[in-house]
Design a protein around this nucleic acid. Structure first.
Lengths: 195, 195, 195, 195
DNA sequence: GATGAATGAGTCTTCATTCAT
DNA sequence: AATGAATGAAGACTCATTCAT
């Protein structure tokens, strides 16, 4: 247990430091200092800077996959599924802004993630999204003249743009703003923006 | 003339190196080698790695602002304006993939760009987009129940997601794929994705 | 203890290297090699070349201020005080020739020390000397028609010229030469050089 | 003639730059810019940074040797000779403060001058001084129980300390201050400081 | 004479990582 | 488990100097 506490302290510190400085400019010394432990202990639990970073990033992927799997097999109607997915992003922004910030700024498009391992994560993510989009098409909720992976890009792009704005502006998010944003995303995605 | 040639050689090399390695991992030595010039010459023309990078990034902003200003004051109808904007992104991907790749991976959401100077660039970009969206609302093409800056995020997010996919996958782009993607973006943005 | 030993090893090495090459031509690599430690350890203990140099220079100032404070508050008669001060310079030349060499060649008049911080050190030094000179005037040992700070410059100039000769010539100093030199300085300062 | 003008422009600029930044921190580019000429021209006239510096320093030595030779062979009485020597330093401070500043801060004790060539200059200087001191002893003006080279160090040390104070403080020097300082030096050297 | 573009060796400094205690 | 001293590879940047024009 004691170990786990230390590990979590380190992860919490790393989350904050990676978020504030980015992967490259983050020094292991900063993480250790912020966590209040020695250099060596960070290396004891996490073997390298990269492993530490991956540990954090995997927390994100795991949570995201979880939500997508859940919605994929959910019996909710399609629009409800979309809402759940969008909500996940905004909830994470509220509960763990460091985590989603790191995703947006250091993972989502970052060159540091352009490894085969990094791309795998995205492929799995897009594959899950695509399956949900197919469900939407099959159930008649989505137009069929646009490829499901195109719909995926568009839907994910809308969400990410919103989250990025929040992240870059370090903006707070209250309940009503959150709902307005989610509505805008869902409505424009489904009904379009035309007047 | 001769000067400009060398400078351009260096910029071309930098474009490629920054794109392939990202800002952090790019070494000035790589740029010099790729450009076929000496170490010092890069510093002769561009005072530092940061200046070199900024020079490149500003090429992007200048081009982007140019298109947006043009569309803002154009007399085309609104959907045509949107098409022009989207086309700009895809054309740049074809003509100068290094440039847009750097924008997507190193600028758009990168922590290295989260400086006040960097944010200014984005603000001006979003301000221009917003004005165009307002024109769309005023001319009745866009619904008025969603704030123009929300529409901006959504529209820009859709484009960027597509471009990112191309960039990350280093995918080639022929004419028909390009048109299909542009159509998808415009149609979903305007009419929505519902079946 | 172990730490202090390493730090002192580095300082000893730095003393020698700075003395032999001067601040500008001294390379941190030389210091590390001479100390038998790695490159990074010098930076571990001293953050930069400048800090390392300052550490050394401050050793000198501390010792010098100590002697001057001591003589200022001593109850010895005035000529005795002067002797003590002069002896300090010559003793330091014997015990730590690197230290006083650095003072003479790199600090005393060097342009690298013409910072406000550097000048402060000199001001405090001259202020202490001046107070001792005032004591000499008040006790009737020194003529009153010459300003005490003029007397300071003259006295300090005499000492420094001698020490400089030793330093520049890397001359050894035995007891009798030392006494002869001290005598010459004190006598000429007090009685003058006239025949 | 035109050439000489350019050369002198460069020397004037170099004098100022070397004085303000010191040898190490002075960049040839600074000298060229200050002189209003190109890099290359500085190299055209002076082959290297070292040669440029030596040219300047030799101006000083030449002037100094000139005064000492003159006084050595002058028929003035000894105290008058001393006054002439001291006056030379103070006059130079008034007429060409950059030159004497460079001497004091970059030559007099600087490690960069600890070459055999540099030491030769000093030896010749001290030899000339010593001969004048011997004249003083022979003519009964100076005590004979102190070696002439000791008297040289003391006398030169007094002068240099004064000049250094002026240089380091960048102090202006009017006629009365100058005379007071010269008097103090001569009087204390000859009669001593005792009350 | 005059220019300034071009060169590249030389140095400081950073920081991930190791390992003895 | 925990520490932090120790390592050294890596990389940005400087600047004296050269040389084609």
């Amino acid at each position: 247990m004691a170990n786990n506490e230390k590990q979590e302290t380190i992860i919490k510190a790393a989350l904050e430091v990676f978020r504030n400085y980015g992967y490259s400019k983050t020094r292991m010394a900063d993480v250790a200092r912020k966590a209040g432990v020695s250099y060596g202990l960070v290396y004891h639990y996490f073997g390298s800077k990269e492993v530490l970073f991956d540990t954090i990033v995997n927390m994100w992927w795991k949570a995201l996959y979880g939500v997508l799997e859940e919605q994929k097999s959910s019996t909710d109607d399609f629009p409800k599924k979309l809402v759940k997915v969008v909500e996940f992003f905004f909830d994470t922004y509220q509960d763990n802004p460091d985590l989603i910030s790191i995703f947006v700024t250091e993972v989502s498009r970052s060159s540091i993630y352009r490894t085969s391992r990094g791309l795998e994560k995205f492929k799995r993510f897009f594959a899950l999204c695509e399956e949900i989009m197919k469900q939407g098409q099959d159930s008649g909720f989505l137009r069929k003249d646009i490829k499901p992976h195109y719909l995926t890009y568009i839907f994910f792009g809308e969400i990410e743009a919103f989250i990025s704005i929040l992240v870059l502006g370090k903006e707070p998010l209250n309940k009503s703003r959150k709902n307005r944003a989610i509505n805008a995303i869902i409505q424009v995605f489904l009904q379009g923006a035309r007047g």
